Simulated scan of single mutants.
Amino acid sequence: MGDDGSLRSKSGNETAAFLVRSAFVTEEAVYGVILVSGMIVVASAGEATVWPVFWKVFATVIVFWAAHVYAGTVARHGLDEHEDLGLREAFIVSLRRSLGLLLSAFIPLLILLLGATRAIDDAYALWAALWAGVVVLAVLGFVAFRRRGSPWPMQILGALATAAFGIVMIGLKAFIH
């Protein structure tokens, strides 16, 4: 971010890196991947095709994201550590903070869509979407520990610990189905 708090004074690469760090590598992103994985597990029970799973997961992500933006706006409106936030500013801050929840669903939903459109087999799409969630969680954990300056063994441990939440979802799918 520039000295004035805007994105204007950064180069394209710096702006993209800032957006990845501030929007994607967040607790909202971790929560979003776990939410999507859990929804895949629950929504796929008894479904013959991936289409209904895709739409249930998609709708749930949109509702949770909208609720997160709304809750953040209400919580931040008029209350901030450094200044009094108006409704518009509170909404913008909440919208930016919640992008990780929305963006984190993209890869698993894309894989489900590939299954729904028959580009890949339905069963493969479900399992691939769950494993993609594990990979995304591992990357989020790794990047979070790396940007805090942790030594590489802690970065790996952080990636494995974060990915473990996705592994739990895969275990649930195997157990339930």
Rank of each mutant, 00 (worst) to 15 (best):
E89H: 07
S11Y: 14
L87Q: 02
F142H: 11
A17W: 11
P151L: 08
R21G: 07
V36H: 09
A45W: 00
N13I: 14
A17N: 12
L7R: 07
A138Y: 06
L140R: 08
S44D: 06
A105N: 03
I156N: 04
L99M: 15
P52W: 02
V61M: 11
G149Y: 12
H68Y: 03
G115R: 01
D3L: 14
I111Y: 03
W131V: 10
A128R: 10
D4P: 06
A45Q: 12
T49L: 01
S44P: 05
W152Y: 08
A161M: 10
K10G: 03
D122S: 14
A17E: 14
G38V: 03
F165V: 07
P52Q: 07
A128F: 13
A144H: 13
S6A: 03
A67K: 09
L109G: 01
S98W: 01
M154E: 04
D3K: 08
V136G: 01
A144W: 13
A125R: 05
Y31I: 02
T117D: 02
F58M: 15
R118S: 09
L35D: 00
S104H: 08
F165M: 09
T73A: 06
H68D: 13
Y70L: 15
I107H: 00
V36N: 12
M169I: 02
V168S: 00
L137M: 13
A123Q: 02
Q155L: 11
A129R: 10
S94H: 06
A29C: 08
G12F: 12
M154V: 11
F58I: 13
F175T: 02
A43F: 07
R97H: 03
K56I: 14
T73I: 05
A138C: 10
V30K: 07
L85E: 03
L85M: 12
L79V: 06
V53E: 04
L103Y: 02
V50K: 03
V63H: 10
V30E: 09
F106W: 01
H177D: 14
V41I: 08
N13R: 09
F54Y: 10
A144I: 07
S22I: 14
E89P: 00
V69F: 15
A17R: 13
L19A: 15
G78K: 05
S44K: 01
R97P: 00
G149P: 04
V33D: 00
M1R: 12
V93N: 06
I176R: 05
F91K: 02
V57H: 08
A129S: 15
G141F: 09
P151N: 03
W65I: 12
I62K: 05
L172A: 07
L102P: 01
R88H: 07
F64Y: 04
V134I: 15
S9G: 14
A128H: 06
L95Q: 08
M39A: 15
G166T: 11
S37D: 15
F24C: 03
M154Q: 05
G115I: 02
L85F: 06
V57L: 12
F18H: 09
A123E: 05
R8G: 01
V143I: 13
L101C: 01
G171Y: 12
A163C: 06
I107W: 02
V57W: 10
A48E: 12
L101T: 03
L102D: 05
